[in-house]
Design a protein around this nucleic acid. Structure first.
Length: 412
RNA sequence: GGGUCGGUGGGUGAGCGGCUAAUACCACCGGACUGUAAAUCCGGCGCCUUUACGGCUACGUAGGUUCGAAUCCUACCCGGCCCA
């Protein structure tokens, strides 16, 4: 008899609230169908989505059926949760493209190849809703007083920010999704991050009122930075799961560079390591915390980008930061044509080309402040030119600051 | 629809005719120290360049007044509050 999924999630620190824990535990004794939604606001998911993806992963492992919703319908609206500003509306085309792109990423976490796991687009049922019908059948179950009393909406009002009608309706649509999935697929559990708690409860309530059935909600704590900000974004941009937007090596490095205080939590929530191993890693102190970070980074990178990419990232990181053995295979690479190199490229241009500097001015600044390296040597002269002869066959390694690396390779 | 207040750089938010590429704080970047961590200290943080008391662009949008405008005027767009 395998452990109850609720206990598995709880042990990993993935539960922040459950709508009726005792009844849910009983329900999880037998296979059930659960769902989790993702807003298609970009062509890639980010590190911030990992928490719910892992929840789904563990539930599936425990024998439950996942339904993953790429929210093409709700994505048209924009979730106001946790935001004080109004979201920009996405076009139909954007949403469709994003949904398609995200779908492939979901497969990393949930096995869609066999069994009856589903990926659905809620636009399929939301788009055909009749307004009058929706108001009459669904809208009547929602109290505006109650909605305005919840943090999500009250914060907006208290802050003197605009809250438009579209956003007020987001909750109804999400609740309707849950109802629809219950009716069509027998889905009785919705999971998400804790910012979705009240939206989920709205769905649970709706199902109870309309179907006279108990459904459940389960939310995970949000991983936050040391400052309490939502994790998953850095100044350099979001931590995309798409290898094209955030190379696996950089993704690995993101986890290595995580603040110590977050490591214990992240090990439980985001890795697939057995809890016995997690417990041991959590006991590490001082410089040894790096070992925990390596385990974290490798495991998460392997989940997202595959074992091979994770191994390569780890080897490269070791050679760059530890022993300087091994090679820098996995460092993000930019191709520069032989012709360009024959003519010579200024170091400033190269820093911009490789995204190590956002502008030429920033590149000059970087050099002036002593933060730019070409190979092993610190670049002192912003006017310096890099020639073909300076680029070895395996590429010229550029460095910005202490730990941002990029390689230049002679291309066609 | 009426009244009123407001829209400034990634965020909060000063400035209210020249001294302002624009105070301050946060975030961020580089250096030192370290454990590829945190804290701390130092420097930086619109774009371009021949790096210069240089050029260009920028304070919701479009015009206007002025030798000179983020700062004044007009119209429009967007938002808060009050009234309907």
């Amino acid at each position: 008899m395998p452990a109850n999924a609720l206990d598995v999630l709880d042990a990993r620190g993935l539960i922040s609230a459950a709508s009726d824990a005792d009844a849910l535990r009983r329900a999880l004794d037998r296979p059930l169908t659960f769902y989790v939604g993702f807003d298609p606001t970009a062509t890639s998911l980010t590190a911030g989505h990992l928490v719910t993806l892992m929840m789904a992963h563990h539930l599936e492992q425990a024998g439950h059926r996942p339904i993953l919703i790429a929210g093409g319908g709700t994505g048209m609206i924009g979730d106001p949760s946790d935001r004080l500003d109004t979201r920009a509306l996405l076009t139909h085309e954007d949403v469709a493209a994003n949904v398609a792109a995200i779908r492939t990423q979901l497969e990393r976490f949930v096995d869609l190849s066999e069994g009856d796991a589903l990926v659905l687009n809620n636009a399929d049922w939301l788009a055909e809703l009749g307004y009058l019908e929706f108001l009459r059948d669904i809208g009547r179950h929602f109290s505006v007083n109650e909605m305005l009393a919840t943090d999500t909406y009250r914060n907006r009002l208290d802050a003197g920010e605009n809250l438009n009608f579209i956003e007020l309706n987001y909750r109804l649509l999400q609740a309707y999704d849950f109802l629809h999935l219950y009716r069509e697929y027998g889905c009785t559990l919705q999971i998400a991050g804790s910012d979705q708690w009240s939206n989920i409860l709205a769905g649970v309530d709706l199902i109870r009122r309309v179907e006279r059935t108990q459904a459940f909600g389960l939310v995970a704590p949000l991983l936050t930075t040391a400052e309490g900000a939502k994790m998953g974004k850095t100044a350099a941009g979001a931590v995309w799961l798409d290898p094209g937007r955030r190379p696996p090596f950089d993704f690995y490095q993101f986890w290595i560079n995580l603040a110590d205080g977050l490591v214990a939590q992240a090990l439980g929530m985001l890795t697939t390591l057995p809890m016995s191993e997690v417990a041991a890693l959590r006991d590490l102190r001082g410089p040894d915390v790096r070992r925990a970070k390596q385990a974290l980074a490798h495991n998460v990178t392997a989940t997202v980008h595959g074992r091979e990419a994770a191994d390569a990232a780890r080897e490269t990181a070791r050679s760059l930061f530890a022993d300087a053995t091994g090679d820098a295979e996995a460092v993000p690479t930019t191709l520069v044509t032989a012709a360009e190199l024959e003519a010579g490229i200024s170091i400033v241009d190269l820093l911009v080309r490789t995204d190590l500097a956002p502008s030429r001015g920033a590149a000059r600044r970087l050099i002036a402040q002593g933060g730019a390296y070409v190979g092993e040597s610190r670049a002192a002269d912003p006017e310096a030119i890099v020639n073909r002869s300076q680029v070895p066959d395996d590429g010229l390694l550029l460095r910005a600051g202490r730990k941002r690396y990029h390689r230049v390779v002679v291309g066609p």
